[in-house]
Amino acid sequence: MRRTRTGPRDVSREPEPRQPGRVLDARLHLLDRQVLDVDGMPVCTLDDLELEAVDGRSAVDERIDGSVPVVITDLLTGPVLGTRVFGGRPPASRWHRLPWAHVVDIGTAVRLSVRSGDLDATWLERWTRDHIIGRIPGGNHDPESSG
């Protein structure tokens, strides 16, 4: 069926009621923000958000629509460069998930309550430290003061 379109159509708008909690827009306040751990160390950038119905219904089992409330369950980070350039999205297995329950604060950065070393999202950094940087002479200790 061919869709009908006659150009942009402005709909009449009503004032938005005041909401009972803090309001966040995904692109304005969350996506592409830096994620910091409890010590303020960078963890990753926030690439996407995992959404799930509050009744536990998942998109795999059943279609989600406006009839059921949806909440953020995880912050996602992963290999999105290719999909942002060419379209599509990474497979679900490639995402690293940071549970919403770990989020402490949302400001210019998203702050977590856990250390980055405990997160799967930083495995590549740890692997590089242990297998590459650590094998360079002098690479396994802090630099000494030159006096």
Binding site: P20, G21, V23, L24, D25, I72, A101, V103
Partner: peptide
């Protein structure tokens, strides 16, 4: 009618340790 340019969440769900759950 247009395209979805953003998603608005409200933190008014059940408290989930530090922040309330973010409802779409």
């Amino acid at each position: 009618l247009g395209w979805v340019v953003d998603l608005r969440f409200v933190l008014d769900g059940a408290p989930d340790t530090f922040l309330a759950r973010a409802r779409l």
